[in-house]
């Protein structure tokens, strides 16, 4: 009995927090808009018994998904989001890895403090931190003032309201999600392995590439997923820091939901976004499992 409950817990979790919400969104995506409360039809009418349920399913269709293929806006927005998420994830890794590496190699009594410093920004509201970047990046902002006082530039750089500001915002916001898993992987690393590699004639750099990096791969991949997935659907950062021409699926979804009041199309956009994320994750996991089986 106890074992049964232990196994049931993760499944209930999955059911309540993922499957049920997903089915509700899927159901709305197959409906039609209506000027009513709530603004879509058909409604599931349990009072009418089996007939009600049968009529409900008969009224659902895939029209909204066909609609998404008819307008170039949607796939362009998906592609543009993928690009922004991929570029930001790359830069987050580029910045995050050295920080995690330095933390893992710091003196042991320093590590809790360093860890604290990584977590500390979370104590301030995410929204306020993104807002403060507007003050830093604007044309008369601190960054431009600083660079101009150094004489590095004579004209202020235009960063705010461009994709660059979005990249900076995402890298800054999600950096801890990259650092923490990589740090966790590097911290467990046995220092003797590096010594052995160096004894066998590796330079420090090739020891890093041949030993340290492959062994931290798990952390790198976890970090990349933690950054890439939320960045793909990001709405707040592009709307505050991005330009009017920054095309992201989060903004498109907002417009479908709030401007067009078209909950069904908005839900269809969300379902496609989810599929875009889930397919690569499943493929990746299967690949990992095969690799693990091959090892044994």
């Amino acid at each position: 009995m106890r074992r049964f409950f232990l196994i049931a817990v993760p499944y209930i979790w999955l059911l309540a927090l993922f499957l049920v919400p997903f089915l509700i969104v899927l159901k709305i995506s197959l409906s039609d808009t209506a000027l009513a409360i709530p603004p879509y039809t058909p409604q599931l009418d349990f009072g009418a018994g089996w007939d009600g349920i049968r009529n409900f399913f008969a009224a659902l269709d895939f029209e909204n998904f066909t609609f998404l293929t008819e307008d170039a806006l949607y796939w362009k927005a998906y592609l543009s989001s993928l690009k922004i998420a991929a570029v930001s994830t790359f830069f987050t890794l580029l910045v995050g890895y050295p920080i995690a590496y330095a933390m893992a190699n710091a003196r042991i009594e320093w590590r809790p403090t360093l860890m604290m410093l990584i977590i500390l920004p979370f104590w301030t509201s995410f929204l306020i931190r993104v807002y403060s970047w507007m003050g830093i990046l604007s044309q008369e902002g601190y960054l431009n003032q600083f660079l101009m006082s150094l004489g590095l530039i004579s004209e202020p750089l235009i960063i705010l309201n461009t994709n660059w500001a979005v990249y900076i915002g995402i890298v800054y916001t999600y950096l801890p999600f990259m650092i923490l898993p990589i740090y966790a992987a590097l911290e467990k690393l046995d220092g003797a392995l590096i010594e052995a590699a160096e004894d066998l004639g590796c330079s420090r750099l090739s020891a890093f590439w041949l030993v340290t990096f492959p062994l931290s791969k798990g952390g790198v991949i976890a970090g990349c997923f933690l950054v890439f997935i939320p960045a793909l659907g990001e709405f707040v950062i592009p709307s505050l820091l991005g330009g009017s021409d920054t095309l992201m699926i989060g903004k498109v979804l907002w417009e479908e939901f709030f401007s067009n009041r078209d909950w069904p199309v908005a839900s269809a956009v969300a379902v496609v976004l989810l599929l875009l994320l889930i397919v690569p994750i499943i493929l990746f996991q299967r690949n990992e499992q095969k690799a693990r089986e091959a090892d044994q």
Binding site: D71, A72, L73, K76, A77, S244, D245, T246, L247, V252, E255, S259, N260, R261, D262
Partner: peptide, 16 residues
């Protein structure tokens, strides 16, 4: 018409 207007507005803003 709302859909036409929203779409036009996205096109004006983003060029797409």
């Amino acid at each position: 018409v709302q859909r036409v207007v929203t779409r036009l507005w996205t096109k004006i803003k983003s060029g797409t």
